[in-house]
Design a protein around this nucleic acid. Structure first.
Length: 505
DNA sequence: AGTGCCGGGTA
DNA sequence: TACCCGGCACT
């Protein structure tokens, strides 16, 4: 068990402070390259783990735990060093929070930092209010507690079929044996698809019609505490663990850019008539629909999954926001306003992973709310782009009367009930077009946008055809629709003998 | 032959 | 950038 603990709490790669080799008192930083355990004595304070630390000057030195701890302690007293660490995870847990700032630099794994520090705390901290006794007890009973919590979580949540990693996260102390596979690390987050890998907990909802998003949602950080009855042992470390999750998502410098590499943030838009509420979590939107629209006061337990049909996933293009592409969104309301067919949420949501959202209060986490999360703050709802996986989704807006602006207005004319007929094809408008210029003039602008959107976000069937030359469109183009005599009604591209922008295929 | 549209030219 | 057109690919 002790070996396991060491592995679990591996700090390999973490930056630590160690006593100066020159003895001048100035601590030096280094990166832990290896950990050797020279004494398996499990009695508290008796272990001798030797850390091989790659020093700044490139040399490798070995330090005992105490030495490193002393370095940490020492560092804590040093203003400059302390300040250099100010970016360390601040996860809200008073205990880890306090030591955290002193010990590890931002580039190190915060989780590992915290864990190491919790170990160190026993040595270096006497003033911090830390549940020492509980902690020790927990260490001794780690396996029992771990097993108990796993069993508890499995037995209490029928929806828990997602990644076991959540269990581990919830357990905080029991990291995976894979060592580096710390569930809290940025790399872990990014590997889960580039999105925030946990979602607002709230309701994990309807057992009867479990859907992918629900199962994903069911594994929420704050759900762990509610598993209840695990006992005081894990309670201590558990809170920090939960906070670590928040902290890692909110405060990590590393993970956020990595997440943004994907540039898309998943949001959930209520499709209910006159609503259009956008929330960052499926659970939140479900609860919103359930309570607001379905009028069900009860929580997720009495849900039948009907909410699933009343919201859809959208993706915020955070890059576009950052890059000033917002102008695109503003210029063409139809791009961001129309929701995809509600029937699609299932396949779409199956791949979703939600943002780090604050558990529980997902309803309050509208992008407008500001202050919910860094990203939500940076991504006003007016700027999101709907990611459409299918052409018909992109064409859906065609049948929607072009409303003036913003997201809400689109949903005004779009209700869940009529969504089932959303297999409309882009060819429809020209086919049914009677010759008046009303529709074309309106659709032209959209057509321009649409072609862009599809070109980027979806892979048209013709992609398999010659790339050099566009395969001839099968649909009627401006020339056919309007005829040569009405050439002035053609889209500009057609007039210029370019690829038709109005009736793209 | 009719059509769609790429590539390039012109103002 | 807007506009135009030769010419090719395709039906």
């Amino acid at each position: 068990m002790h070996t396991r603990r060491l592995v679990k709490r591996s700090i390999l790669g973490s930056r630590v402070y160690a006593p100066s080799p020159t003895g001048d008192g100035a601590p030096v930083t280094g990166v832990v390259q290896a950990v050797k355990q020279e004494n398996r004595d499990v009695h508290a304070g008796a272990r001798h783990s030797v850390y091989t630390v790659l020093m700044q000057d490139g040399s490798l030195k070995e330090f005992s735990e105490e030495e490193i701890a002393a370095g940490i302690n020492h560092t804590a007293a040093k203003g400059p060093l302390k300040s250099s660490l100010k970016q360390s995870s601040c996860n809200g847990a008073p205990e880890s929070h306090m030591v955290d700032g002193f010990s590890l630099s931002p580039e190190a794994s915060d989780t590992r930092s915290v864990s190491l520090l919790e170990q160190k705390r026993k040595v270096v901290s006497s003033s911090i209010d830390v549940p020492h006794a509980r902690r020790s007890e927990e260490e001794v009973d780690m396996d029992k507690v771990t097993a108990a919590m796993v069993l508890t979580s499995l037995s209490t949540s029928p929806l828990v079929r997602s990644p076991p990693v959540r269990v581990n996260e919830g357990l905080s102390g029991s990291w995976k044996d894979s060592g580096s596979a710390c569930p809290f690390t940025p790399s872990s987050n990014s590997s889960s698809g580039g999105y925030w890998s946990w979602s607002a907990p709230s309701d994990h909802s309807n057992p009867s019609t479990p859907s992918p998003p629900l199962s994903a949602d069911s594994f929420k950080p704050f759900r762990v505490p509610s598993m209840g009855g695990v006992g005081p042992g894990p309670a201590g470390p558990e809170d920090p663990s939960l906070d670590e999750q928040d902290g890692s998502s909110l405060l990590f410098d590393e993970p956020i850019p990595r997440k943004r590499k994907n540039s898309m943030k998943v949001m959930f838009k209520c499709l209910w008539k006159n609503c259009g509420k956008v929330l960052s979590t499926a659970a939140g939107i479900q609860r919103h629909i359930r309570t607001i629209h379905l009028g069900r006061s009860c929580d997720s337990d009495c849900s039948d999954g009907e909410e699933d049909f009343y919201y859809s996933e959208i993706k915020l293009n955070t890059d576009s926001v950052a890059d000033g592409l917002s102008s695109l969104s503003h210029a063409s309301p139809t791009v961001h306003s129309p929701p995809p067919p509600p029937a699609s949420p299932h396949p779409l949501l199956s791949q979703l992973s939600e943002c780090h959202g604050a558990p529980g209060s997902s309803d309050a986490k509208e992008p407008h709310a500001g202050g919910a999360t860094p990203l939500s703050r940076s991504a006003p709802s007016a700027l999101y782009l709907i990611h459409t996986d299918h052409a018909y989704q992109a064409t859906a807006p065609v049948s929607i009367p072009s409303s003036s602006n913003s997201t809400g207005s689109a949903s005004t004319s779009f209700t869940p009930t009529n969504s089932s007929s959303f297999s409309i094809s882009w060819q429809s408008p020209p086919v049914t077009f009677t010759g008046t210029a009303v529709s074309p003039s309106k659709s032209q602008g959209f057509g321009d946008q649409r072609s862009q959107t599809i070109g980027v976000l979806s892979s048209p069937p013709r992609a398999t055809a010659a790339l050099s030359r566009k395969v001839r469109g099968e649909g009627k183009k401006c020339r056919k629709v309007y005829g040569m005599e009405n050439r002035d009604m053609w889209c500009t591209a057609c007039r210029w003998k370019k690829a038709c922008q109005r009736f793209t295929d």
